[in-house]
Write a protein that binds this DNA or RNA. Structure first.
Length: 93
DNA sequence: ACCTTCGCCCGTCAGCGGAT
DNA sequence: ATCCGCTGACGGGCGAAGGT
């Protein structure tokens, strides 16, 4: 998958590393505990969802600013086209 | 003061695709 | 085949704004 690529997706070094020390300090019996497994999975997914939403917002910001740029370019081109047309009318008219 | 509606955020689940 | 991360979808909570 990996959507939102291109269009500057900043990485999130700054985000807090909460809750999870990645299975480092866990005994085998702890790792096998389904309840603990679920807790860990939920916590990881919670963080993943937060990051995903942050990236999506950033992506939308990028798109919006790109729209603004393109709209300005479009206006400028329309303006230029008009002036060329005017020039042409003067010559032929 | 009390609803009601709207927009936003969050946590969770489900499903997909890549990595092993 | 299994694990894991990412992301769309869903439902719930909360505050703001507007109507009664």
């Amino acid at each position: 998958m990996q959507t939102y690529q291109n269009l500057t997706m900043p990485t999130s070094d700054s985000l807090p590393q909460t809750v999870l020390t990645p299975l480092g300090g866990l005994s085998q019996s702890q790792v096998d505990d389904p309840t603990l497994k679920r807790t860990i999975r939920l916590a990881k997914n919670r963080e993943a969802a937060q990051e995903c939403r942050r990236k999506k917002k950033e992506y939308i910001k990028c798109l919006e600013s790109r729209v603004a740029v393109l709209e300005n370019q479009n206006l400028a081109l329309i303006k230029e086209l008009r002036s060329f047309k005017d020039l042409h009318c003067v010559k032929t008219g």
